[in-house]
Write a protein that binds this DNA or RNA. Structure first.
Length: 864
RNA sequence: GCCGGAGUGGUGAAAUAGGUAAACGCAGCGGACUCAAAAUCCGCCGGGCGCAAGCCCUUGUCGGUUCGAUUCCGACCUCCGGCACCA
């Protein structure tokens, strides 16, 4: 063992050794308990960033810990390799997306290896390879066959700069999640997955995921957005047409005075046809279709609409209700039609005021009577029914049930449930994605690619077009094909590719048998490894990726490939890595290395002006508050970097980067290194202490006890809640205690064996966190095996027991004194000792205590 | 607007079946070693008053329950995240 701790040297040495000995490679072992630990795989954007380092460090600690606990641990890594940045980079650098992607993967794989993560690299999965996406295409065909995938013309979110459609989940506050530009509506033929079929099941199971953060399941529940209500059928006057509406307030149906249809509702032009409103309606539809649907823009729109020229009949009151088309009615929700009850819905109220439509209150608040003419806003609360025929005087919640019964009895409607969740549109007008395996033939229509023809390989000889438009439609040798059904030679392939969230919805199954070429995965391997026991990743995927993965798992379940429904048993969403921002009046945001420190004041390295410190924010290239992992690896090595990421904050919380904190982590490792070096010759050949605790002299007994307490604490911190920060603190305390042991404590044999035990404990407890460091010291102690092969330390219960307890004494709840006594001293004796304390006497005086509370081995509270 | 989460020293954070608030770090201060510096080691380190013993205050604010509240309950303030014309 070197005198100096040389991180780079030992890290390289052990990484080579681990690779040579295939240490991290695992296989199905039916007789051993498995543990599947998964971290969200990265998009190969170029370089690993600190967010990845944190995520993967947390995962690696758990993987190594579980291995030492005796589990057969699957810990894979791969690449979410399709996606737009590859295209953008290819256009900017005049390369091909594939080249850019594979170069990045090679670079990032090397970075991950340098961090010492215990991945089984033989299981690496890269989603842009045909042997991966062919099975995705296969599943698409199965889904098509079962009606789970379908095509329809739909208004989609269209991003002009990106030239593509976006899923609802990819629209953030009305803007494209990637480029931040406004999203517009465009009508296109699109492929969809019928995720709404599983809306109820996905929702119900949110409450059966005890290993997930409640925050995430709540977000998913909100996203699915279940509403319970009724569908009521309104007949159009002088016509056979019936318009169903969805409402959650069927108790207010007697107060419905008009109806609103979404501008895109197919009935709107039909209703208006031949009436004097036809022209006005057509103008309105045209105008609304051009409006931006961004929520920002929507907020500023006034509620407006146009009369269609037709009326419908309120099935309860027989009222003659004008039918409007209005901008606030959404085609995508419910039936695209709203029964408007202005007295009890704010939007309807605003609309009624604007167009002078009748307002009829039908639910009075407790002890109040609403008068339409005096209402300033709608009343949406509960109360007693009024103006509702036989239901008058009843509580509205009760009437709601009876009205539903009545509607059902008379065939005028039924109870219904509506979801906010929409089907998942997966078509993307992009090149760098998995081709959708469909063919369009003028004779046969839409024809699936025969299974035998898979994979439909994405042609790699395509040249990207300016602006990012897909080259596929114009690529004749790809787009032109023969119809598999009739043999026509002028059939055309689908040239849209799949949303990249499709790849990430099943990669965890592929890891179980990554090279399997007879199907998506080897069912036996999946049966052994799945579900994932612990999944770790960023909270930004709380809805998109996690909901889609849960959905895909249900699809695979329904097809009969797997027998579980939930893919991830436990989920940890780690916080962001943040750092303070710095800016200079002239140069804007500065990189950390662009600030020069002069006696505590920072100056811009470019112009010498003082630097302004900004708020602590998520590390991002645009804010320039980033730390490059390469620099840390170079300067401190992987172990210090890993240690700091775990020590600075508990995993679920945001981590504030601190260069001084990193320095402190390095200092701790050096301290342990020197401690080990100082004792190495003494403990060589000794066996770890295992004798009676009481017979040890003071310092050694305390050290031995501390070692066992530390094992207990660290194990609990990792096992129960992944609080590595407190686990590390505990080891630091043990190390501090070991420093107190001098060359004269106890006899030589006791000293040797107690220190051997303590040293081995420190090394093993730290080994999942700083694996190279621990391995080197373990080796120096004379061990030849890997720390991963050593069982996780177990504490001795009898060694935890203290012989003395410190009792604090309170008078009226205030701390007034303390004393030590033998543990488990009986309450009466403790009371006497407490009352005898001089300071306590001062506060008690000659007053007789009203009550004395004793908490064993902890505290006495005297109430006077 | 609705739904979540969080507010603790100079600072990152500890401590919840209610029981010594601030463990462990970082920064700072003092000392040892050194020609000096770095590194290292030892000590101090919430605020106020006091020579001191000690006393008072302190976990966003205000109340409540309790012998005792960072922890439980109620109201409010601030910050962060999610959803938002969803009928």
């Amino acid at each position: 063992m070197d005198e100096q701790y040389d991180a780079r040297k030992i890290e390289q040495k052990w990484q080579e050794e681990w690779e040579r000995s295939h240490l991290f490679e695992v296989d199905v072992q039916a007789d051993r308990p498995k543990y599947y630990l998964l971290e969200m795989f990265p998009y190969p954007s170029g370089k690993i960033h600190m967010g990845h380092v944190r995520n993967y460090t947390i995962g690696d600690v758990v993987a190594r810990y579980k291995r030492m606990q005796g589990f057969n641990v699957l810990h894979p890594m791969g690449w979410d390799a399709f996606g737009m940045p590859a295209e953008n980079a290819a256009i900017a650098n005049n390369t091909h997306p594939a080249e850019w992607t594979y170069d990045n993967i090679a670079y990032m794989r090397n970075q991950l290896k340098q961090l010492g993560f215990s991945y089984d690299w033989t299981r690496e999965v890269t989603t842009c390879t045909p042997d991966y996406y062919r099975w995705e295409q296969w599943l698409f065909l199965k889904m098509y066959e079962k009606g789970m995938a379908y095509r329809k013309e739909a208004y989609v979110n269209w991003c002009e700069p990106c030239q593509t459609v976006l899923a609802n989940e990819q629209v953030e506050a009305g803007m494209c999640w990637r480029c931040g530009q406004p999203v517009r509506q465009k009508k296109l033929n699109q492929w969809f997955f019928r995720i709404t079929d599983f809306a109820e099941d996905l929702l119900v199971h949110c409450d059966q995921l005890p290993g997930w953060p409640e925050k995430v399941t709540t977000m998913q529940k909100n996203w699915i957005g279940r509403s319970q209500g009724a569908e009521i059928r309104f007949a159009v006057e002088e016509s056979d047409t019936v318009i169903p509406v969805f409402t959650t307030r069927h108790d207010t149906v007697f107060g419905a005075t008009f109806m609103c249809l979404a501008p895109e509702h197919p009935l709107v032009p039909q209703l208006a046809a031949g009436t004097e409103q036809a022209a006005a309606v057509a103008d309105f539809i045209e105008r609304i279709s051009l409006q931006e649907r961004t929520s920002k823009a929507v907020e500023t729109y006034e509620k407006e609409g146009v009369f269609t020229g037709k009326y419908c009949i309120n099935p309860m009151t027989g009222r003659h209700m004008p039918i409007y088309t209005a901008n606030f009615a959404l085609m995508e929700y419910g039936t695209g039609a709203v029964m408007s009850v202005p007295a009890h819905d704010q939007r309807d109220f605003d609309f009624a005021k604007k167009y002078d439509l009748p307002i009829i209150p039908v639910v009075n608040p407790e002890g109040e009577t609403l008068v339409a003419a005096q209402m300033a806003e709608a009343y949406a609360g509960d109360g007693l029914m009024v103006n509702s025929g036989a239901f008058d005087g009843q509580p509205n919640r009760q009437a709601m049930e009876k009205i539903a019964d009545l509607l059902e009895a008379k065939g005028l409607g039924r109870r219904a449930i509506s979801y906010r969740l929409r089907d998942w549109g997966i078509s993307r007008q992009r090149y760098w994605g998995a081709p959708i395996p469909m063919i369009y033939c003028d004779t046969c229509g839409t024809v699936p690619v025969p299974e035998a023809d898979l994979p439909i390989v994405l042609p790699e000889d395509a040249h990207l077009l300016a602006g990012g438009r897909s080259p596929l439609p114009a690529l004749d040798n790809f787009a032109r094909t023969t119809c598999p059904k009739c043999g026509r030679t002028d059939a055309r392939r689908e040239t849209d590719t799949m949303d990249t969230f499709v790849e990430s919805s099943w990669y965890f199954e592929r890891y179980c048998s990554p090279k399997f070429n007879e199907g998506m995965f080897d069912r036996e391997a999946v049966a052994y490894w799945m579900p994932v026991d612990q999944y770790i990743g960023g909270v930004e995927h709380a809805i998109l990726h996690l909901l889609y993965s849960r959905y895909f798992t249900r699809v695979l379940h329904d097809i009969g490939l797997i027998d579980y429904k939930e893919p991830f048993t436990r989920l940890l969403t780690q916080g962001m890595v943040c750092k303070e921002t710095m800016s200079c009046p002239q140069h804007g945001y500065l990189f950390p290395e662009q600030a020069r420190d002069e006696r505590g004041t920072l100056y811009c390295a470019l112009c010498d002006q003082p630097v302004t410190l900004g708020r602590v924010e998520k590390m991002s290239k645009s804010k320039r508050n980033v730390v490059d992992p390469n620099v840390l690896l170079e300067r401190y090595g992987a172990d210090t970097t890993r240690l700091f990421c775990l020590f600075a904050a508990p995993p679920e919380r945001d981590l504030e980067w601190s260069d001084q904190g990193v320095e402190g982590s390095a200092r701790f490792l050096n301290r342990v290194w020197r401690l080990a070096g100082a004792w190495l010759d003494v403990v060589r050949g000794a066996a770890p202490y295992d004798g009676p605790v009481e017979s040890l002299p003071d310092t050694l007994r305390q050290t031995y006890r501390k070692a066992h307490q530390t094992i207990e604490k660290v194990t609990r911190d990792i096992e129960d809640r992944f609080h590595f920060n407190t686990a590390i603190s505990a080891v630091m305390e043990l190390v501090n205690q070991m420093h107190a042991v001098g060359p004269d404590d106890g006899d030589a044999d006791q000293r040797k064996s107690v220190m051997r035990h303590a040293l081995e404990t420190v090394i093993l407890l730290l080994s999942p966190i700083v694996p190279h460091f621990a391995q080197e010291l373990w080796h120096a102690l004379g061990h030849t095996q890997s720390t991963l092969a050593v069982p996780w330390p177990v504490y001795r219960k009898d060694a935890l027991v203290q012989e003395e307890a410190t009792i604090v004494v309170q008078v009226n709840g205030k701390l007034r004194g303390r004393f030590t006594t033998a543990v488990d001293t009986d309450d009466d004796t403790v009371k006497q000792l407490a009352l005898a304390d001089e300071r306590v006497q001062k506060f008690v005086g000659d007053k007789a205590p009203k009550k004395i509370v004793v908490v064993k081995n902890k505290l006495v509270n005297i109430v006077v």
